[in-house]
C-alpha cells in the first residue's frame, strides 16, 4: 500500500491576508500567546501590482533539515511525509530553527526566569508520538485532525481557498488548473516548493 504524500500550498494570488489560518490554528490547538505555528506575511507592502501575501508554516520538507540537525534526534517523519517531533525528548536548543528555511519552529518562553522551553511547530494537525487522540497528545501537540479524517484547521477555514493541503497529486492538480485558468506568466512550482520538496 502506498501512502499519500502530504503537502501545503498557499496561492499568493488568492491570499487576502485575513490571518484566519493562523487564528484557526491558534484556536484549534489552544496555542499559548507568542506561539504562531502559522503566520501570514506580506511582501512588497504598498507597491502597486507587486504586493502579495502568503501563509507560512512548517512545510514538512522531504529532506527536513530540522530532523538532520537535531542533536537529540527528537524528529520523525511519517510515511505520508508529515514531520513531527517528540516534545519529551526535545531540549529546546533552537538548532531546528537555524536549519529551517521557513522559520517554522517556535519556542515558548515559559520556564522559570523566562527561560526558553521545548520547541513547538505545525503538526499538519497530526498530533505527536503519544497515543492518538489521548489527552496527553492534545495537551502537548494539539488536535489530531488527520486521525479523525479531517482537513487541517488552517486550510479547512481558508475563506478564499488560498491555502490547500493534501496529497501532492491532488494539490499539484489544483495548482495546475489555477495557473492555466489565470492564463498568464510561467510558474513551474508554488513558492517554497523547490526548497521544501526538491524537484
Amino acid at each position: 500500500m502506498s501512502y499519500a504524500r502530504m503537502k501545503f500550498y498557499c496561492d499568493e494570488a488568492r491570499c487576502i491576508e485575513c490571518d484566519g489560518c493562523s487564528v484557526a490554528c491558534a484556536e484549534a490547538h489552544e496555542l499559548p500567546v507568542g506561539i504562531s505555528r502559522r503566520k501570514v506575511v506580506t511582501l512588497n507592502e504598498g507597491i502597486e501590482g507587486k504586493e502579495f501575501s502568503v501563509s507560512v508554516a512548517c512545510m514538512h520538507c522531504t529532506d527536513a533539515p530540522c530532523e538532520q540537525v537535531c542533536p537529540v534526534d527528537c524528529f520523525y517523519i511519517r510515511e505520508d511525509g508529515i514531520v513531527l517531533h517528540d516534545k519529551e525528548t526535545c531540549i529546546g536548543c533552537g538548532y531546528c530553527l537555524y536549519a529551517c528555511p521557513f522559520g517554522a519552529p517556535q519556542f515558548p518562553k515559559d520556564g522559570a526566569f523566562g527561560t526558553r522551553g521545548v520547541m513547538d511547530k505545525c503538526t499538519m494537525c497530526a498530533g505527536g508520538p503519544e497515543e492518538t487522540n489521548s489527552a496527553k497528545e492534545r495537551e502537548l501537540y494539539g488536535q489530531n485532525r488527520i486521525a479523525e479524517g479531517k482537513v487541517p484547521a488552517c486550510a479547512a477555514m481558508c475563506s478564499t481557498k488560498a491555502l490547500i493541503v493534501g496529497d501532492e497529486q491532488e494539490v499539484s492538480k489544483i495548482y495546475r488548473e489555477r495557473v492555466m485558468s489565470r492564463g498568464k506568466g510561467v510558474q513551474s512550482a508554488p513558492y517554497g516548493w523547490s526548497t521544501a520538496y526538491g524537484n
Binding site: K39, V41, L43, V54, V56, F102, Y191
Partner: peptide
Amino acid sequence: LLVSSELVQNI
C-alpha cells in the same frame, strides 16, 4: 523579529 515579512525573503 523572527516573524515578519523578512520571513519570506529569508526563504
